[in-house]
């Protein structure tokens, strides 16, 4: 069997660019300083649901308003996780596990408060009609919730009619749709046409499998998204006032 040293044949760039610091070391530099809030943020980073609730309880017992902890502590912890993910120091399962812990924390804070919590905005998430491949939608949904958005998850194989009806009812700031197959992704165009016919100009963020930027650029409301982690960033950009043209300028990479 032939074997050779591959150094002149391939380069493992992931090793070349690897940070000398561990994720935990980088996180230490990013955590909030308040000791109570630090405990909550660390528990989110660790993805420990029980520890998140315990840290929240301690903080609430010290007189802090539960709802304020959603943004000040839970979101702050998740921000550290998101930053490390963007740096390539954490991987998707780490983000998912932290996000689940944070979502538990949000529910706990809501239970402890007499007031209602306003999310950053409402987003409809779905998999197109004829398609049952939903791992991409699951990832997007968790990431959006972890970033403070209320997600109306319509599930998989969702008929166009149902998507349009949900938009009319919920009035979301955007839709997030995924499709694996070229044969099903044309349902995005039908949603686009039906929304425009009703004078609804909500961005339809599309990604997954065979979906391409060229395809999505072909209908008025379409915004192509290649990376699940970009979806919360697109939502943030919508809140900052970017319209579909500007969203395409920012997030269309090809």
């Amino acid at each position: 069997m032939i074997d050779i040293n591959p150094k002149n044949i391939l380069i493992r760039y992931n090793i070349l660019v690897e940070s000398d610091m561990t994720p935990e070391e980088v996180a230490e530099q990013l955590y909030p300083t308040d000791p109570h809030i630090l405990q909550v943020a660390k528990a989110v980073f660790e993805g420990d649901e029980d520890e998140v609730v315990a840290a929240l309880q301690n903080t609430i017992d010290s007189g802090v308003d539960p709802l304020s902890l959603i943004n000040d502590a839970l979101m702050a912890g998740m921000e550290v996780v998101s930053t490390l993910y963007d740096y390539g120091l954490l991987y998707l399962p780490d983000v998912i596990i932290s996000a689940q812990a944070m979502i538990e924390g949000i529910e706990y804070c809501k239970e402890q408060s007499k007031q209602t919590h306003e999310s950053k905005g409402k987003i409809i998430s779905y998999v197109v009609e004829g398609d049952i491949h939903d791992i991409g939608k699951k990832i997007v949904t968790v990431l959006l919730r972890a970033n403070g958005y209320e997600v109306i998850d319509l599930g998989k194989d969702v008929p166009v009619e149902e998507v349009v009806a949900a938009v009319k009812k919920e009035k979301p700031i955007m839709l997030s749709g995924t499709a694996l197959m070229t044969t099903t992704m044309h349902a995005f165009k039908d949603v686009n046409s039906r929304l425009l016919a009703s004078d609804i100009n909500v961005p339809v963020v599309c990604g997954g499998g065979a979906v391409t930027q060229d395809f999505v650029s072909d209908y008025d409301l379409g915004v192509y998204c290649e990376e699940a982690a970009d979806v919360p960033k697109i939502a943030d950009s919508i809140l900052q006032g970017l319209d579909i043209r500007k969203l395409r300028d920012t997030f269309h990479k090809h």
Binding site: Y13, N14, V17, Y85, G88, L89, Y91, L92, P93, I135
Partner: peptide, 12 residues
Amino acid sequence: FVAGGLLDFKLS
């Protein structure tokens, strides 16, 4: 596919 390319940090 979730793991992706060398510089995709999604899955080990």
